[in-house]
């Protein structure tokens, strides 16, 4: 098992009800696995504006950062004790 920490930044802290959430995932887990777990654990209560319930992915300008790099490919491997940060940007102009 690996443990991945999701840090919700800015207004997303309120969305998730906490600034930080831990997820236990199987060895070799990928970003897709993390998204599936987010969907299973939180999907029903996440707002439709940021979460696509059917496709188990974020909707709109939500960015997942691993270190200084944005990640979006579901096949991106995750490692134990990895911290991923979640941002929602303001982009509508």
């Amino acid at each position: 098992m690996i443990r991945v920490v999701l840090q919700a930044c800015g207004p997303l802290r309120e969305t998730f009800g906490a600034p930080e959430l831990g997820f236990e995932l199987a060895d070799g887990a990928t970003l897709g696995d993390l998204l599936d777990r987010i969907g299973a654990d939180h999907g029903e209560r996440l707002a439709g504006s940021i979460w696509n319930l059917r496709e188990r992915r974020f909707r709109g300008p939500v960015v997942i950062m691993a270190g200084s790099r944005a990640v979006k490919d579901r096949a991106t491997p995750l490692h134990d004790q990895q911290v991923v940060r979640l941002y929602k940007a303001v982009v509508g102009g």
């Binding site: 709109g60 979006k72 941002y87 982009v91 509508g92």
Partner: peptide, 15 residues
């Protein structure tokens, strides 16, 4: 991250 968000979604991202 907003740089990424603008690139990935453009202004439509907030629709």
């Amino acid at each position: 991250p907003t740089t990424v968000a603008f690139h990935e979604h453009g202004t439509m991202g907030d629709y």
